[in-house]
Computed example of a mutant assay.
Amino acid sequence: MVTHSKFDSAMSSSLLDSSMRLPHRYKTFTSKTQYQMVLATLHKLQESGFYWGPITGKEANAMLAVENIGTFLIRDSSDNRHLFALSVKTASGTKNLRIQCDSSSFYLQTDPKNIQSVPHFDCVLKLVHYYMPQSKGNTRSGNMCHIYCGGEKIPLELIKPFSCSLSTLQHLCRKAVNGHSDILSKKEKLPIPLKEFLQEYDAPI
């Protein structure tokens, strides 16, 4: 089995510049495919405006304390065995969920006792969008997902990202286009530079 150190590979890779480093984690990559998936996800997270990087769960709790229910952010996991975490304000306060990562996908295990398969995604942004309310272009059914924590069953509602930076007008337009499937269906007719710009960030959030 080929393994890649998250830290060493990121430092030596020509794909990364000084502003795009993977968090230092002790878990290794199981394949080049997984490594590339994480790099692509990290790039999109840094474009998203709600990826806060290496803040702690305690800091996330403090920032979300006065926000409305459903406000969320993505940050680096405080657990060295994981890469990313989702912090979300719920009716029972802020909850911090580890985003699991296997060889080819990301997923949330909101109920440790659940033996059924959970949805898997090749990007954290797709995972976040899945758990947001039904919207145009979102094929998720209306079933509510719940977090099971300390004996509580808490609805998982991702409504509004908590921004850490201002988005450019170009990026806001790109997100708007990504949220309209009728426009995306005509993407092949767009000029190549515009198609590439849309492909760099293909999420509506």
Score class of each variant (00 low, 15 high):
V2G: 08
K6T: 10
A10N: 03
S13C: 11
S14M: 12
S14T: 15
L15S: 15
L16V: 04
S19V: 11
P23E: 04
K27F: 09
T28H: 07
T30C: 15
Q34M: 15
Y35V: 10
L39I: 05
L39S: 03
L45R: 12
G49E: 05
F50L: 09
F50E: 01
G53Q: 09
P54W: 12
I55W: 08
I55C: 12
G57T: 03
K58D: 05
A60N: 01
N61S: 06
L64K: 00
D76F: 05
D76A: 08
D79M: 08
N80E: 06
L83G: 01
A85E: 00
L86W: 01
L86E: 00
V88C: 03
T90H: 05
K95A: 02
L97I: 04
I99C: 03
S103V: 13
F106W: 03
Y107W: 07
L108P: 06
L108W: 02
Q116V: 13
Q116K: 15
Q116I: 12
H120R: 08
L127G: 07
H129Q: 09
P133W: 05
Q134E: 04
G137C: 08
N138D: 03
T139N: 11
R140C: 00
R140L: 00
R140K: 07
R140D: 00
S141I: 05
N143M: 11
M144C: 15
C145A: 11
H146E: 07
H146I: 13
C149W: 13
G151Q: 12
K153T: 03
I154A: 05
E157F: 04
I159T: 09
F162V: 09
S163T: 12
S163Q: 14
S163I: 12
C164G: 08
L169F: 12
Q170E: 09
L172F: 07
C173P: 05
K175C: 07
A176V: 14
D182F: 11
D182V: 10
K186T: 10
L190V: 06
